[in-house]
Each structure stands twice: as structure tokens, then as C-alpha cells.
Design a protein around this nucleic acid. Structure first.
Lengths: 214, 214
DNA sequence: GCCGCCCCTAAGCGCCCGCTCAGCTTCGGC
DNA sequence: GCCGAAGCTGAGCGGGCGCTTAGGGGCGGC
């Protein structure tokens, strides 16, 4: 299927880089709360409570509530870029790399849905400066995917009349997984990743997705 | 391109059914505010201000702020179901009906983006009772699209190994348009609708999308 | 021309928000 | 065994939130 997620640690807890321990516990609590209720509906008391601390403890490790969201968003986007970059720059045909990119990216959105939800849907809650920084990372995501599609068109593997629009649609399809994926639903992140990789190869007109092409 | 949106009024102001006039002005103001900032970040004072009224006026026409969201969500979902149902039950092959459904649905999400954004992304802000009512309408959307795909598979027009998953992906793709579409961007709602109809026909393995199939 | 009804406003209630601060505990260095 | 730094808490601040209430103005019916 692929290895991009494994080599980038995409399916493991990505918060090990956050220290000290109390700061990490607060950040993980914030991710859960933001994902469940949304940034604006989450109170600092709720976050601190989930981390087993008093409300004041939050402000020892983070400047404001928005600062917390900013760090979550930054780390999450770094991970997203890493996943796509690893797939885009690996060995293999454009078809293989696109399938790898989509299945890894989808697997991350499904398997780490709480993080992905905050990362993808709470961007507007950031102030202008922080938002601009994050938007630059999003453009990198776009560029990686577009690069693969460009390669496939150049090599004749793909038939894509509108590369920009198709890139947008592919990313959009993957990102929206964070909205609807249900952990208790019938599909595993791996299964959704495989299904989506097949659908995307059809979208770009690639032959032999490996699975059920007529 | 298609007629589903026109016959259902999908691209016209859909709030004419809301009376009296003051109630409609408040509702339109709420849609704008919720779409811009999100439900929880919007204050009742902001809504009333946009409608040119005092904060108290809101409570003459609506029981609570959540009641406002509920009515918006209800009307919006009714419209969404109507658009898909009209396309699904029109004359024509499964290929034509699927293209019509997707292009109409996408055109609505792009052209009436503020409404669509509230309808699709603020569901969690509703209480359990109201949410259940809305979820039933979502299941109707799903059923209409799945019906078209089932028809296409039965007639041999489509090649779809996973009908349930593909239905999910098609709807997901359309809905996410409300997240990224930019009114000042380079594409019109019509163009996005046409692009997406083509992409979806590729996803289901339909021949001759009318456009650029190899 | 007066009444009753419908809309609407000014004022404000009670609550909970994000955030602060003084002080307590714990712990390594010497 | 004392000291300063670091981590954390209890109490509480100013403010803005959703929502309520008392009352005023305008308009149709008769």
C-alpha cells in the first residue's frame, strides 16, 4: 500500500516533541476539546480540567488560548506537509506516488481525526499573522500534490485537462475525511485510504490503479 | 449544462419564505455572521446590529440564538435535498443525472457559499433533538446520490466496486466546496460545477462525460 | 378619535469567559 | 539544611455574553 506515513511517523502520537510533560498534556487536552466542540466553544477551564490542572496552569506554558491553537496548527501542518512531501519525492511512477500521497494523507486525516479536524477547520480562529504563516504551509501541500500530477501529465500517465482544479479537488477530498470520518464506523483508516487512492487515480485518468479498473 | 438548480430556485435568494420582513432580515444577518465567524464566535448583538435592530428585537422573532441556527439549517437542508432529488428523478441516463446532480449541488455550495457553510459546518452547535432532525435530511441526500449510482451500475454505465464509499466521497467532494470556494477567486460556480461533474463521472468509471475523456 | 395589538427599544440582570496574581510546594546545588 | 527557581493553585478581576423586562410608538378596526 505505501510507507510514507510510517517513515514520517504520521500514524504515531506526534506530540512527543512538546515539552515539558505538563505542556504536552495541556496541548493534547486542547486538541481533544477543540475537535469535539470547536475552538470558540471550548473554555480554558475545560482544557485545564481535562489535563488535570487548575485554569491558571495553562498560562504558565502558553501565552493565550490562541497561542495554544497556533502551536497545534503549526505542528499539525508541518506533519501534513511532511507526509505529502515524503510521498511526492519517493521513488516510483507518478501513479504510484499519487496513490501513496493520497492514501497516506487520508490515513492521517482518519486515524488522527481529532488533530486533523482542529488543523483543517479552526484556521479562521487564528489572528492574521498566525494565519498567514499557516497558509504558507497549505500552499506547500498544494504544490507537492500538483507536482505529482504535473509529472504524471508530462509522462503521459495521467489525462488531466485542469491541473489546478484537479489538485484542489484531490486535496479537498482528502481533507474532508476529517469532517465525516467516524472512529466507530465500519471503515478503518487503511480502507478509506485505499478506496480514496483508487478514486483519485480514476479522477486523473490513470490506468491500472492496482485494484478494480475495468 | 443542467436545469436542476433553476427549477428548484437553487441559485435565487431562498429566504423569501421567511416572514415577517424583520424576521427575514435577522435571519439573513445571522447567516452572514455565522458563515464569517462561526456560530459560537457570533454574538446576538452582532446579528441584531447587522439587521439594523437592537439586541432585544431578536427575541421577538426567535426563541434563542440556537433556534435561529436551527431554522437556517432546516431551510438550507431542505434546499439541498430538493436540488439532489430534482436531479436524481429527472429524465435521462444515470450518467446525465449524476452530472446534473453534482453540478447543481456544487453550484449551490459555491454560489450560496455563506448559507452552505452554516448548513454544513455548524451542525454540532445544535442540540440533540434538532441535530437528529437535520441528520435525517442528510441521509436523504445520501440516498438520492446512491440511487443514481445504483442505477448506473445496474445499467452498466458505471464501474463502481464500492457504492457506499463512492457515494460518501462524491458528497464529501461537493460539500467541501463550501469550505474553500472564494467569491473573488478565479472560478465561477458554474465552472466549478462543470469541473466537478467531469471528475465525478471519472470516479464512477462513466464513459463520455461530454467533455475531455480520452 | 380612541383602543388594542404588534414591534421594537433602553436598560440591565446574572453568569461565565479569558486571564492575573500572590503565595505555596517541591527539588537540585552546595 | 538553607536558598532560589520553577511549577502550580485558589481566589478573583473586568468585561462581554445570552437573554429579560418595562414601556413607548405607530397603525388598522370601528
Amino acid at each position: 500500500m505505501s510507507t510514507a506515513a510510517e517513515t514520517t511517523g504520521g500514524d504515531t502520537e506526534p506530540w512527543e516533541e512538546v515539552t515539558p510533560d505538563a505542556a504536552r498534556r495541556l496541548l493534547v487536552a486542547a486538541v481533544e476539546a477543540f475537535a469535539e466542540r470547536g475552538y470558540h466553544a471550548t473554555t480554558t477551564r475545560d482544557i485545564a480540567g481535562r489535563a488535570g490542572m487548575s485554569p491558571a496552569a495553562l498560562y504558565i506554558h502558553y501565552k493565550t488560548k490562541e497561542d495554544l491553537l497556533h502551536r497545534i496548527s503549526r505542528i499539525g501542518h508541518d506533519r501534513a506537509v511532511a507526509i505529502l512531501r515524503t510521498a511526492a519525492r519517493s521513488e516510483g511512477s507518478a501513479t504510484e506516488r499519487l496513490a501513496d500521497a493520497v492514501s497516506s494523507f487520508v490515513r492521517w486525516h482518519a486515524g488522527r481525526r481529532t488533530t486533523a479536524r482542529v488543523v483543517q477547520y479552526e484556521l479562521d480562529a487564528l489572528g492574521p499573522g498566525a494565519r498567514d504563516e499557516i497558509l504558507a504551509l497549505r500552499r506547500q501541500c498544494d504544490a507537492e500534490v500538483r507536482g505529482i500530477i504535473d509529472d504524471g501529465v508530462a509522462s503521459g500517465e495521467f489525462d488531466v485537462p485542469d491541473v489546478k482544479g484537479t489538485t484542489l479537488a484531490v486535496l479537498s477530498l482528502c481533507i474532508d475525511v476529517a469532517r465525516w470520518f467516524n472512529v466507530n464506523g465500519p471503515r478503518t483508516p487503511d480502507e478509506v485510504g485505499a478506496l480514496y487512492a483508487d478514486l483519485v487515480l480514476r479522477m486523473v485518468g490513470a490506468e491500472a490503479s492496482g485494484a478494480t479498473q475495468r
